[in-house]
Design a protein around this nucleic acid. Structure first.
Length: 871
RNA sequence: GGAGAAUUAGCUCAGCUGGUUCAGAGCACCUGCCUUACAAGCAGGGGGUCACUGGUUCGAACCCAGUAUUCUCCACCA
């Protein structure tokens, strides 16, 4: 036979992906069918595929392929995100390597480089998605900085500004001194850091007395505006109305009193630094303290600091501490662990900083977004995320939406030379706006502010269908709201919540119905996969090694819904093995010659059984899908194919070596094989398509592809045949077990006698004989003595071995089984004898117990007889 | 500091809202097989006081309380 023994995925993958694409199977346009829409979470435009993408997009592809096969108009919209700060950081780094400093070039020049960079790397990740089989409608590919999407962003800004949601103001922001931009709270990662707590002496004016304050940031003493003490703190009551001198610079600051200060933390005295701490800022507002900002945008000290001007804040910290020590004003230094915020993108320590920024008022906007999830209009899967979603929604603060970057949508604010401003999409509009307000448009300019990336992402499910600018367009009407969103829980607030907010504000509808939150991909030790740890396998390499289908199966097998997954390549191995199993089932069937004789009864019965098993499995699989338990759905498919189809059905109908198979039976096998393939297609698209087109299954046109074939529909289930066959399987296993434990070769046929009192096994005779290798099958009404016996269901079977029947072993085995059943009977009797059980338990439970009892008694009777007959 | 989740076989997890002697699956493991689709395989098998302690109930892996361990998210204590 010329067919390879193992499946080689490579060829099939290249061939079928382009075939699908060329035949437009990924394409979706509105029509009369029910739409099924997924909008892909856009990866960073310059990113490369990592395991998280692999998982995420595999799930989406499984869902979309299944929906497509189920006759829905499946539309999966791909795209990329401009990722403002992340991409800008990459471009800055690239320029630096070229010897170009961002400071030295103009905005236009910089953007030219950035676009160049985007053109060069922007397509990579999407190409990689093709490799994993992603059946996106590539004609719909969008980029968050496409002109139409950018316009939607500006429109939204203008709309929300007009509605009064967007305002401009000086607030404490999270300042990233490396990216030199403000950040939203969500972009700040808090980490525990080992720090030092410095105890610093401040001299009380006109006194030799000192008070001591504890701080982790001695470099900010030059920005101090006051010392604050709890009014109930008797230790310091005498300081009322006094002033103290800031060490080194000897600036005079007041002592104030406020209940905010904890008496038992540190020394009970707090230095108030309104410019560099949020709480201090609020305290300063309350007590009318001056704000002294001693830091530049890049984290170095400015002239207001008076000393160490130009030094980085961390170097200044050490120098200030050293100088304090030298002048005897550093009392002590303690080790101290506290939380410090870091920039999510640049990892720089965040500096709280007063800054003029643009803000989005969240309170009103977020309310309906909470309601959607609360009332089930949107399902979070798993729903354990609801509590934190709710908490975030109810405590959400205004969102700082401006970033001091170049890469992104520029804030449509225009300023004149008096720093008055108007909002307008265009320069012309700005001039008109100024004129309308009777203000001069002299010196018209924009500032270097762009909008937070997540502002554009929030519009994504709408803007990909042009629903922001043109909400009445047919596509938007058809596809929106979308169905499922598949994303990582990490961006629930960053993104998901904001999409719901924007979606509702525009359409009064949710942007999607279900949010499937995948787990985080971790390594075997449970560590998050990351570049710096180097513990993340390259998905592309994995696909090379195990085949795309193998990796897809591996990802899903290891991925319980909503829980993190401990990734291990052995799962990919399992996936590859599974693909190979299917391949070999195909090889088997492919090799059969046919004869014209009609199918035998046994063959028909086998097919009948398998079809019922198939329908049963289908119900289970649908249920798993309905609950987004994809790994369970896959496992049910896996077992149906491996166990039921291959190990039982194919073995049952398999002809003897080199013997032909009845044509009618082969046709049935092929039909069932096709059904099995359609079931597996969403998980293993390439292998199933490859087999689908083999001539074994007849002529197919280029359009007759499994990707658009019908997914199996549920059918009736005959429980009786499934139950009976389970007993048949048990008989076969028992015989094999006897053979195995006695060391008898599978090649030697054994005699089997069945005392069939409950099930008519005669119609299964051929199957039993074949799979258990029975030399002679007889049906008896009497016990056969001297044979190995076992119970199959409630019927006893006997295998008479020619010699060496180990009577003692038999006796022991039967005695054990009797003991088990007796124990079982006692526990059942206990229940049935319990009045309260009889009263309280549901009738069907009681009836069930009674059945258990009679079954057990019947079985015991048989076993006791067997034991007696052993002598 | 607040909130949430988890703890079931060597590993990863099911156990669908208390009822078969309820303890399951896949992988791994052990034994025997190169049986003419597949050794990436076939047949068989051994593994668990359901974290701990109490409580509720006729009945608990499942419900409640507490304890321990682990993880995640949120939070401005210098």
């Amino acid at each position: 036979m010329s067919i390879a023994k193992t499946y080689s995925p490579k060829e099939a993958e290249n061939k079928w992906y382009s075939h699908w694409k060329e035949n437009g199977f990924f394409r979706s346009v509105p029509d009369g069918r029910e739409p099924y829409t997924i909008v892909m979470p856009p990866p960073n435009v310059t990113g490369v595929l990592h395991m998280g993408h692999m998982l995420n997009n595999t799930i989406q592809d499984v869902l979309i392929r299944k929906a497509r096969m189920q006759g829905k108009n499946a539309c999966w919209v791909p795209g990329t995100d401009h990722a403002s700060i992340a991409t800008e950081a990459k471009v800055v780094a690239m320029l630096k390597e070229k010897g170009i400093n961002k400071k030295d070039i103009s905005r236009e020049e910089f953007l030219n480089y950035a676009w160049e960079w985007k053109e060069k790397y922007g397509g990579i990740i999407l190409k990689q998605l093709e490799k994993l089989g992603a059946s996106c409608d590539w004609e719909r590919t969008k980029f968050t900085m496409d002109p139409d999407l950018s316009e939607a962003v500006l429109d939204t800004f203008i709309k929300w500004h007009e509605k009064g949601y967007i305002y401009r103001g000086v607030r404490m922001v999270n300042w990233d001194p490396q990216g030199k931009t403000a950040l939203s709270d969500e972009e700040v990662i808090r980490k525990e850091v080992n720090q030092k707590l410095y105890y610093i002496r401040y001299q009380i004016k006109d006194s030799s007395e000192y008070i001591v304050i504890a701080t982790t940031r001695p470099e900010t003493i030059m920005a101090d505006s006051a010392i604050c003490i709890n009014p109930n703190d008797e230790r310091y009551a005498h300081l009322k109305g006094k002033t103290v001198l800031v060490p080194i610079i000897n600036r005079e600051i007041p002592v104030i009193f406020d209940g905010y200060v904890e008496m038992d933390f540190g020394t009970g005295c707090l230095k108030v630094t309104p410019a560099h701490d949020l709480n201090d800022y609020e305290l300063g507002q309350k007590h009318n303290l001056p704000v002294i900002d001693i830091l530049n945008d890049d984290g170095t000290l400015n002239e207001k600091a008076e000393i160490f001007i130009g030094e980085d804040r961390f170097i200044a910290r050490k120098k200030v501490a050293k100088q304090l020590e030298e002048i005897g004003q550093l009392e002590k230094v303690e080790d101290y662990v506290s939380q410090v915020g870091f920039s999510e993108r640049t990892d720089a320590a965040i500096e709280p900083k007063l800054s003029m920024q643009w803000w989005l008022k969240m309170e009103k906007l977020s309310k309906p977004a909470l309601d959607y999830v609360q009332d089930g209009t949107i399902n979070l899967i798993p729903d354990k995320f609801f509590t934190s979603y709710k908490h975030w929604m109810e405590n959400v603060k205004d969102w700082c939406i401006s970033r001091q970057l170049w890469w992104g949508q520029r804030i449509p604010a225009w300023y004149n030379d008096r720093n008055e401003w108007v909002i307008s999409k265009t320069e012309e509009g700005a001039k008109e706006a100024f004129a309308k307000e009777g203000k001069s448009a002299e010196g018209l300019r924009q500032e270097d502010d762009v909008l937070d990336t997540w502002f554009s992402s929030a519009l994504w499910p709408m803007s990909v269908f042009d629903g922001v600018r043109n909400p009445d367009n047919a596509e938007f009407q058809y596809y929106y709201p979308t169905n499922d969103l598949v994303t990582a829980p990490e961006i629930l607030f960053f993104w998901v919540a904001r999409m719901i907010i924007a979606g509702h504000d525009y359409t009064q509808k949710p942007p999607f119905r279900n949010v499937y939150l995948t787990g985080i991909v971790r390594d075997k030790q449970g560590r998050k996969m990351s570049k710096s740890l180097g513990n993340s396998p390259d998905p592309i390499e994995l696909m090379e090694q195990y085949g795309t289908d193998g990796v897809r199966v591996g990802m899903l097998l290891s991925s319980p819904a909503g829980n993190d997954l401990m990734f291990d390549v052995s799962y990919c191995e399992q996936g590859r093995n599974f693909a190979n199993k299917v391949w070999n089932a195909f090889r088997l069937v492919k090799g059969w010659e046919t004869t014209d004789s009609p199918a035998t009864d046994a063959q028909k019965l086998a097919a009948n059984w398998f079809e019922n098993r198939f329908n049963q499995a289908l119900v289970e699989i649908e249920d798993h899908f309905a609950h987004y338990r994809l790994s369970d759905a896959l496992m049910a498919t896996y077992k149906l194919i491996w166990d039921d189809f291959c190990a039982w059905y194919l073995e049952l109908v398999k002809p003897a070596y080199q013997a032909p198979i009845e044509r009618e039976t082969l046709d049935t096998v092929k039909r069932l094989f096709e059904r099995v393939l359609t079931l597996a297609h969403p998980f293993m698209p390439f292998l199933t398509e490859e087999l689908w087109h083999d001539e074994l299954f007849g002529e197919r046109t280029a359009e007759d592809c499994i990707i658009v074939a019908s997914y199996p529909e549920m059918g009736a289930i005959d429980e009786t045949i499934i139950k009976e066959f389970a007993t048949v399987q048990q008989i076969i296993s028992e015989v094999r077990n006897i053979r195995n434990s006695k060391g008898i070769s599978p090649k030697i046929g054994l005699p089997l006698a069945i005392n069939a009192t409950h099930i008519n096994f005669e119609r299964y005779s051929e199957s039993i004989v074949k799979l258990a290798n029975i030399e002679e099958l007889t049906f008896v009404k009497e016990k056969i003595s001297g044979a190995v016996s076992f119970l199959a269901g409630k019927d006893e079977c006997y295998v008479a071995l020619e010699n060496n029947i180990d009577i003692d072993a038999e006796r022991e085995r039967i005695t054990k089984e009797i003991a088990y059943l007796q124990g079982f009977l006692i526990s059942v009797d206990k229940k049935l004898g319990n009045e309260r059980f009889m009263q309280n338990a549901k009738p069907e439970v009681v009836e069930n117990e009674q059945n258990k009892k009679s079954d057990a008694i019947a079985k015991l009777q048989i076993l006791e007889d067997s034991l007696a007959s052993l002598g």
